[in-house]
Nucleic acid binder design. Structure first.
Length: 419
RNA sequence: GUGGGCGUAGCUCAGCUGGUAGAGCACCCGGUUGUGGUCCGGGAUGUCGCGGGUUCGAGCCCCGUCGCUCACCCCA
C-alpha cells in the first residue's frame, strides 16, 4: 500500500494478463506493414535535442513545453524522443538509406516521451507503432500508408472509429491561404491567449473546443478552397485510391495536426469510444522535413499509431480477445523422485514444440490441478511414483476431465494426435 | 501549467450525526491417502496515502503534503 518506490508519474505499465494483450495489439498492427514490405528500423530512445526543435518545429507544443531534455556528461543536449519521424529521417540521412531504390519503407515501434499532464489515454511514456515511406510522392503511396493503418485497426476488430483526411496542399497554396486566414482572424475580437495561439499557428483555431470560437470560425477561409490544381488533383487521386481499397473516410477541412512538418495529405483516426484523447493514430506527408534536417530534398509520408490508445479503444468496444495465452500442457509431479523425471520430461517436450508449464513446490494435487485449470492448458499430466514404476503418465484432458494412462514413449505423438 | 473527483485487505469497494475496520472476488487449507472448473466448512492479510491539529476518543472533522484520476491545454 505504501511502496517505497513508485513508477514515475504518468507512465503506462503493462502487467500480466493485460501485457499479453498489449503484445498482441502491437504484433497485429505491425502485420499489414510487413505484408507491404516495410522493414524494421530500431532507433535510439534519445537524440540530439536540435533534431526535434528543427524537425518537429519550435512553435509546436511538443517542442516548446513537452520534451524531456537533459544534458549528458559531455555537455551535449539530448532529448527523449517525443515522436518517431524525425529520428527515422536522421537515420535515413546519416546512413544514406535513400541512395538505393525508392521509396525507402520502414516501420518502428517502441516508447515515446512527452512531459504532459497525464489523463485517460495520455501518458508521459507511451507506445507507438509507425511507418514511413520516403522518396516518392505518389497518391497511391499515400493511400497505401493510410490503408495499412486501417487494416491494422480492422484486424483487431475495431469498428467504432472514423478516418478524417484533408490536404494541406503545397507551399504556394498554404501561403495564399495563410495570409487570408490571418487577415480573417485579426478581424475577430479574441482574447489574448487565443491570439497568442493563432500567432503560433493560425490553423489551430479551427479545432478550438469552445463554442464561441467555433462559431466565429465558421466563416473562416478554408485551406481546402485554396488548393491549386496540382494539389487538388493529388488529393482527389488519394481519395479515389482509398475508395478502390474500401477504406471509408470523411474529409475534415478543420483538421489540425500538432507537428509543423506536415504538407499535402494529412489524416487522423479518431475513435468514438474514448475520452478526450480520442486520436488513435495519425500522420501525413512531409515535403520539406528531410531537407530541413540536412538531407536530400525528398518527400515522405508516414503515420504514428498510439498502441496504448488502440488497446483502450478495443476495451471500449469490447473486442478484446480471450485466450491469447496458449498452453498445451501442465505437468504435475508428485513426490521427490517424480520431480526430476518431470523436469526432464518437460524439457524434452518443449523441444518437441509444446508449450508447457509445470507445477513447482510441493503443493497438494488439488491445488496443482487448480493451477493447471487457471493456466488454460488443454492437458494436464500427473507423474508420481506409480507412473514412474510403470513408465507411464496420467494424461488428463481438461475440457472433459477424462483421464487416461499413456506410456512415456508415445506421449509426444499422443499429444500431437490430440491437438 | 490550470481546475474537479478520489486515496480503507492482492483487486473492486462499504463504513451512519466522530466510539479504535468490514463485504465480495482472489489466495491458502480441509470436506475427496493422487485429480481443476460447482458446492460446503475453515484460515491469513490492513502503519484506513503521509504529517500535523481539534477531541476523552479520528477511517470519518480541520490544515498541510504526496499520489492517483478526469477535464482544460495539447495530442498517440
Amino acid at each position: 500500500m505504501n511502496p517505497k518506490f513508485q513508477a514515475p508519474k504518468g507512465v503506462s505499465e503493462y502487467l500480466p494478463p493485460r501485457s499479453n494483450l498489449f503484445d498482441y495489439v502491437s504484433r497485429t498492427l505491425t502485420a499489414p506493414a510487413l505484408a507491404a514490405g516495410y522493414e524494421l528500423i530500431e532507433l535510439p530512445i534519445f537524440e540530439d535535442t536540435e533534431l526535434f526543435t528543427r524537425g518537429v518545429g519550435e512553435s509546436t507544443d511538443v517542442v516548446s513545453k513537452e520534451m524531456y531534455t537533459f544534458e549528458d556528461r559531455g555537455g551535449r543536449s539530448l532529448t527523449l524522443r517525443p515522436e518517431g519521424t524525425a529520428g527515422v529521417m536522421r537515420a535515413v540521412i546519416e546512413h544514406n538509406l535513400d541512395r538505393g531504390q525508392l521509396p525507402v519503407k520502414l516501420y518502428y515501434r517502441g516508447p515515446f516521451f512527452r512531459a504532459e499532464r497525464p489523463q485517460a489515454g495520455r501518458y508521459r511514456q507511451f507506445y507507438q507503432f509507425g511507418i514511413e515511406a520516403i522518396g516518392v510522392n505518389d497518391p497511391y503511396l499515400d493511400a497505401e500508408v493510410i490503408g495499412i493503418a486501417y487494416s491494422g485497426y480492422r484486424k483487431l476488430g475495431l469498428t467504432n472509429f472514423s478516418l478524417h483526411i484533408t490536404s494541406l496542399g503545397d507551399a504556394e497554396s498554404r501561403d495564399r491561404h495563410r495570409s487570408d486566414l490571418i487577415k480573417f482572424i485579426n478581424s475577430l475580437n479574441l482574447d489574448e491567449e487565443t491570439k497568442a495561439r493563432a500567432a503560433k499557428n493560425p490553423l489551430r483555431l479551427f479545432d478550438d473546443k469552445r463554442e464561441e470560437i467555433r462559431s466565429k470560425m465558421q466563416t473562416a477561409p478554408l485551406l481546402l478552397d485554396y488548393l491549386n490544381d496540382e494539389s487538388q488533383d493529388n488529393f482527389t487521386a488519394v481519395q479515389a485510391a482509398l475508395k478502390s481499397i474500401g477504406v471509408p473516410y470523411e474529409i475534415n477541412p478543420h483538421m489540425v495536426r500538432g507537428l509543423d512538418y506536415y504538407t499535402g495529405t494529412t489524416f487522423e483516426f479518431v475513435h468514438k469510444g474514448l475520452g478526450a484523447q480520442s486520436g488513435i493514430g495519425g500522420g501525413g506527408r512531409y515535403d520539406g522535413l528531410m531537407e530541413t534536417l540536412g538531407g536530400q530534398d525528398l518527400s515522405g509520408i508516414g503515420f504514428g499509431l498510439g498502441i496504448d490508445r488502440v488497446l483502450l479503444a478495443m476495451e471500449s468496444e469490447g473486442c478484446v480477445p480471450t485466450n491469447i495465452r496458449y498452453v498445451d500442457l501442465y505437468v504435475i509431479p508428485l513426490g521427490v523422485p517424480a520431480q526430476s523425471s518431470a523436469f526432464a520430461l518437460v524439457n524434452e517436450l518443449r523441444h518437441a514444440g509444446f508449450v508447457i508449464e509445470q507445477s513447482f513446490g510441493d503443493r497438494a494435487l488439488k491445488g496443482a490441478m487448480k493451477a493447471a485449470d487457471k493456466s488454460g492448458a488443454r492437458f494436464a499430466i500427473v507423474l508420481g511414483d506409480a507412473e514412474i514404476a510403470s513408465g507411464t503418465v496420467e494424461l488428463k484432458e481438461m475440457s472433459t476431465g477424462k483421464v487416461s494412462s499413456v506410456t512415456l514413449s508415445t506421449l509426444a505423438s499422443e499429444l500431437a494426435k490430440r491437438s
